[in-house]
Design a protein around this nucleic acid. Sequence first.
DNA 1: CAGTGGTCTAGACCACCAA
DNA 2: TGGTGGTCTAGACCACTGC
Lengths: 264, 264
Amino acid sequence: MQTQVTPSFSPLYSQIKALILQSLQAGEWKPGEAIPSEIDLASRYGVSQGTVRKAIDELAAENLLIRRQGKGTFVATHATRQVQTRFLRLVPDSASENNPGSDTYAENGKNILVDRTITACSRERATKDIAKALRLKTGDAVVYIQRVLAYKDKDGKGSAIPTILEDIWLAGSSFKGLNLERLAQSKAPMYAMFESEFGVNMVRASEKIRAVNPSKEQANLLQVKMDEPLLRVERIAYTYNDTPIEVRTGLYRTASRHYKNDLQ
Amino acid sequence: MQTQVTPSFSPLYSQIKALILQSLQAGEWKPGEAIPSEIDLASRYGVSQGTVRKAIDELAAENLLIRRQGKGTFVATHATRQVQTRFLRLVPDSASENNPGSDTYAENGKNILVDRTITACSRERATKDIAKALRLKTGDAVVYIQRVLAYKDKDGKGSAIPTILEDIWLAGSSFKGLNLERLAQSKAPMYAMFESEFGVNMVRASEKIRAVNPSKEQANLLQVKMDEPLLRVERIAYTYNDTPIEVRTGLYRTASRHYKNDLQ
DNA sequence: CAGTGGTCTAGACCACCAA
DNA sequence: TGGTGGTCTAGACCACTGC
């Protein structure tokens, strides 16, 4: 491990970070597992513990690793209860007392998911737009999924209310063998299932949000009128190495829920 | 500076951080100014440079301080061009190629603000809701402002399009002397003006987003039909010490713009 | 050139966890 | 009790800025 020559100087810890990232990508340490201790990594890379520390610090800040004092450093996973809805910002109005940072977005209040209905699942060829977003060629294989999520409102009273309609496109090459059967029988959240079944770990996402009215079909699926204003959330989700692997368009009902965002 | 006794142990750097925060709050160092060098602060607090460093690192991560190699560490300000729209996530569709993190939210593409029209400015008594959000008592003095922001679309062609309608409530005690005149004659962005004129530095905010239809009055001000779906963004903005000081409800047109959010 | 933040090291010690 | 991450130090050196 050498410090670099002048052109675009990259500090040591940053090179170590890249090496750790490489191991994560290669699956050397799986989600949920512990990575080697800081001292081990230091001797492995021939640097001091402090340098490894700084590399891990950054990866932890990006939610790729989780540090636990006294136990070790672990690969982030969507399987743990606290991060299951890491990318879902829609929360009940009763939750989130507008105290940013006071708690995670997950499961505050009574955000009880009652029902996940898969309304479509098929292998398709990527349209131009989907291909561009997933960095594929038009016509490449993609998996298309459509589903409806229903929640119970306050205190679990009343019946389940269809709240989210999602259209999902996945890069076909990473999800060989995914079909309606396997989807339907999985009880885990989707991203947790992607992780355990396909070794795909979602790490980051970018969303574009608009207000729209639903089409007739969409209104039907969500059981709303066509003049109901809905949040339209276009997401691109990425794995390690900034590889886009999922495009997801969600339609959210926001009558008794809202999209929560903390700015800093 | 002593390391603390056992009950709820707080590390040294964290105590230093609190002290720096205190000085920021007290206005010892003003926005835009440099704070003392790490070495100075270290000797001032009687700790090592590394400890001060870690305290500053956290404040920099929270965007309260800005580090500039070779120059010093500066108090964050809304006056600099790059952070003027730090809390505005609405960007033109042409910008933001869905490459999260690739650039800031400000001024990418052709996000040209053409016109800021103040449609109301008065001193009012806080309603129950506003009072609660601002941690005041119902009936306490607040400043109410309403304004419309108009932008030019792609390449500055065409006329200005009213795009954002904002209702703003400010804690009266912090904005004595703010009136329509002073508002109207200020050319700077609102948060920059708050900073220079009232010593109020917005540091953090929390937003709740919904899809709604406008009222008749709102539709009028934005020059849209009443069935146009709009983004409704309820923001509470905070100064140092997590003190809420502004409530702002925005109605955004999202026909050719979107609210951009990066999840991580 | 001096002054600032940025990196890297080596070592001591502390807090937390599990066995 | 031993192993892990977390804190703190002191010192050396590097990269960047402005005089």
